[in-house]
Amino acid sequence: MTELLDPRLLASVFITLFVIMDPPGTVPIFLGLTSAMTRRQRNRAAWQAVSVALGVIVSFAIFGQSILSYMHISLAALQASGGLLLLLVAMELLTGKMEEARPSGNDKVNVALVPLGTPLLAGPGAIVATMVFVKQAGDAADYVAIAIAIVVVHLCLYLAMRFANVIHRVLRDSGTILVTRIAGLLLAAIAVQLIADAITAFIAEA
């Protein structure tokens, strides 16, 4: 089984993307963005948002390495910049700034696509993290693990938004905020580890 799938990498990718994309934390944002929608429209918006986010993440996972090679960007530089971006996202989660995100009020804009699908779900943090994992992959088992983790995380996102009313009723405002803060703390630790690995790589290349 381990020849076809790397369970440790799968767990690492899943936890990283889960913390960055934060399914529980999307609940209050999703409810706020879709407050004027009917139940059927809200369910459709959840599906559209996850589809957009998955498309963006997969696109960068497939073509991201080619872009890096063309621009002559090293993995260490990507890790360092990715760590800084993740640290910014973590600070937004810890300070609550991400919860303040709201649409501009233009009714012609599909909020499921923008800003929910991207950049709230498929933001710079998730994109950079995915590109780092793909660039570090060494064989087919690694790619399978990454692909499964990406799909499972997006499934969690869909379930969180699909049952947003139920989740928010159980966690309440205080519970949702607590989960978001814990996610921010974990994400900050992941960001620091990425930066530390990048510094180690820079020293080794010197």
Rank of each mutant, 00 (worst) to 15 (best):
A90N: 00
N165P: 00
D197Q: 11
G96F: 04
L187W: 00
T200V: 13
I199G: 07
R44Y: 05
A122V: 04
P119Q: 09
P24N: 09
I127Y: 10
A76I: 04
M161Q: 11
M91I: 15
I167L: 15
R42Y: 04
D22L: 12
A122K: 06
A145L: 03
Q79H: 01
L84T: 06
F133M: 06
A201G: 03
Y158K: 03
A46C: 11
P103F: 05
E205V: 15
T95E: 09
A61G: 13
K135D: 12
A45K: 01
V192Y: 08
V114P: 00
R169Y: 11
E99Q: 13
A191K: 01
L4D: 02
W47S: 13
I195W: 04
P23F: 04
S51P: 00
L157E: 07
P115V: 03
Q48T: 14
V151W: 05
V27I: 15
W47C: 10
M21K: 09
V109I: 15
A122M: 03
D22E: 11
L87H: 00
M37D: 12
Q65C: 01
G32R: 09
L121S: 00
Q41C: 06
L17Q: 04
A198M: 00
L116Y: 14
L93P: 04
A140I: 13
S51G: 12
G83S: 02
I73W: 06
T2H: 12
R39A: 15
Q79R: 14
G123L: 01
T26V: 13
A122H: 11
A191L: 03
A141I: 02
S81V: 12
I15G: 02
L121T: 09
S12Y: 08
A189R: 05
P124V: 05
V56H: 00
P103D: 07
L9Q: 05
A196R: 12
L33S: 00
V151F: 12
D173N: 11
L94T: 09
L88Q: 03
G64M: 07
I146Q: 04
A201L: 13
M98V: 15
D139Q: 10
S12P: 01
A204C: 02
T176W: 00
A126L: 10
L10C: 04
P103M: 11
T2F: 12
Q79L: 11
S81E: 06
L31Y: 07
L186V: 10
L87R: 01
F30V: 06
A46Y: 07
P23Q: 08
S104Y: 07
T38S: 14
L87E: 00
V58P: 06
V109T: 12
A137P: 02
P28N: 13
R181Y: 10
P24H: 01
G105R: 11
F163Q: 05
L84K: 02
L68S: 09
L116S: 05
A11S: 14
F63I: 06
I127F: 08
I199M: 07
F60Q: 02
A11N: 09
T38P: 02
C156A: 14
L86C: 08
F60I: 06
V151Y: 08
M1L: 11
A149N: 05
L159E: 02
G25L: 03
L121G: 03
V152I: 15
I182N: 04
F133Y: 14
I146A: 12
F60W: 14
G64V: 06
T34F: 03
G125C: 08
A191E: 09
T26A: 12
S104A: 14
E92W: 10
A149V: 02
A160N: 01
I67T: 14
L116R: 04
Y143F: 11
P115F: 05
N110M: 02
